[in-house]
Design a binder for these strands. Structure first.
Length: 418
RNA sequence: GCGAUCAUAGCUCAGUUGGUUAGAGCACAAGAUUGUGGAUCUUGGGGUCGCGGGUUCGAAUCCCGUUGGUCGCCCCA
């Protein structure tokens, strides 16, 4: 016996029954984002490795150990994208979209790849829906993005995650804060966990959201970014908050919130939930005012976010999402089978979801199948019906049955008027 | 990369101190009505007990290894 080939660890199948959730999430994102003036962009899932190294940051875990990178046949170093922003910005620059209009409002959806150990809400191939805006410095766009994100969740009926915002400052003010924090942590090195001692040098901000209780106590009085913002960043953040207040958007300020990617500046945010085990962020993003230039483009600001579709799906109840046939045609006898097939094809052309039993089975078996599929109606077609040209249409929920001419128009009418 | 934990039918699980052909419920299929679903009943198909090795007269059960899943750490959407 041949051994069945399995899928790759962390690369999952999304099966019918589950996929309906995904369709709903994607459709909702398209509708909400496009209402806000965004257009879809589709970029490759593979880019030159250099793009990610430069944008995400050489020293981040993502670039250091989580990327699927390899050398292709042309000796190019390429990488399956670990996130979406880099590719979108690369395209924005390469296609010179800024020449026509420095303001681009783009959204994307698709698979991302990170070679991490899979666990709840975290897989090696995972999916993100994200949005990016270029060319706008005004904090109103920060607020627009946040309101759009909140509205997306509201429309899906997901109320659990809460919005947290923070500001990371800019190249003007962040170095000074970083130094002050480092100095503070250095003084308390003994009370920190091993991880945090390492973080003092690698990423001091990380120590602020360490889960170890001792570290939380040790950093309770640590300097806050918000108190080290330069006047420009401070005003920007205050303005974002004012606009959120004015639009009735609820949020909380979390000055200990940290971002994993190097390119973030000023406003950062997360939608967090307690329902996903150790993965608390459902969506996250922020401003990246230096990235476009860093990647060889014009000096334009940017802001964006991404959400994890698997994580959104985990928060979404799956009731009432399965698609049901409008009609099942149960045929008795070979000639009736031919007619049933012909009718099915015609009715499908009318936009109805119609099914039948392909292998000749008993009428009882066909009725069972109609029931299992959840068909709203079943058309019973046998020799008698072929002679009279009138079929028996049964409404499955009530069991009521009526006779109808075997004409697609008559059947379509009967199905749609209920 | 580190740690914990689990693995018996498609799914959820039972399987006694190691003992004969490994069971149940659900699901699936056929029938009870030779032309009518759901409820009930009957019958049926389906299992390398994750894999490999060891102990033993005998292993789903005990031991070792290994693979896979899940969860946590790290990190992240």
């Amino acid at each position: 016996m041949t051994v069945a080939i399995t899928g790759i660890k962390g690369f999952n199948d999304i099966l019918p029954g589950e996929v309906e959730k995904w369709q709903r999430i994607e459709a909702t994102a398209r509708r909400v984002f496009e209402n806000c003036g965004f257009s879809e962009i589709r970029v490759p899932i593979m880019e030159k490795t250099e793009l990610f190294a430069r944008s995400i940051g050489d020293a981040t875990d993502i670039v250091e150990k989580e990327m699927y990178s390899f050398v292709d046949k042309g000796d190019n170093r390429v990488t399956l994208r670990p996130e979406g922003t880099a590719g979108v910005i690369r395209s924005f620059i390469e296609q010179k979209l800024h020449a026509q209009d420095p303001v681009a409002k783009l959204y994307y959806m698709g698979p991302m790849f990170r070679s991490e150990r899979p666990q709840k809400g975290r897989y090696r191939q995972f999916h993100q829906i994200g949005a990016e805006v270029t060319g706008i410095t005004n904090p109103r766009i920060d607020a627009q993005i946040l309101v759009m994100l909140c509205r997306f969740f509201a429309e899906l009926g997901i109320t659990e995650p809460t919005l947290q915002i923070n500001s990371l400052g800019c190249p003007e003010c962040r170095p000074a804060y970083r130094a002050a924090l480092k100095e503070y942590l250095e003084m308390r090195r003994e009370s920190l966990c091993d991880d945090c001692r390492r973080r003092i040098d690698t990423n001091p901000l990380r120590a602020l959201d360490c889960k170890v209780i001792g570290c939380g106590e040790a950093t309770a009085e640590a300097p806050s970014v918000l108190q080290h913002l330069c006047s420009g960043c401070d005003e920007h953040f205050a303005s974002v908050r004012r606009h959120l207040d004015a639009t009735g958007t609820s949020y909380s300020v979390n000055h200990r919130m940290v971002r994993g990617l190097d390119y973030y500046t000023r406003t950062t945010f997360e939608l967090v939930t307690g329902l996903l085990g150790s993965q608390s962020a459902v969506a996250a993003g922020g401003r990246y005012d230096g990235l476009i230039q860093e990647l060889g483009g014009p000096k334009l600001p940017g802001i964006g976010f991404a959400m994890g579709v698997e994580r959104v799906a985990l928060l979404l109840s799956d009731e009432g999402l399965a698609r049901r046939p409008d009609l099942f045609i149960a045929a008795h006898g070979e000639a009736a089978g031919d007619e049933a097939f012909r009718l099915m094809i015609l009715l499908q052309g009318e936009g109805l979801r119609v099914e039948l039993e392909y292998e000749g089975k008993s009428l009882k078996s066909q009725m069972r199948r109609a029931d299992k599929l959840g068909a709203r109606y079943t058309l019973v077609l046998g020799e008698d019906e072929l002679v009279s040209r009138r079929g028996k249409l049964k409404e499955m929920a009530s069991g009521e049955q009526q006779e109808l001419p075997l004409e697609p128009a008559a059947l379509a009418r009967a199905l749609s008027c209920s």
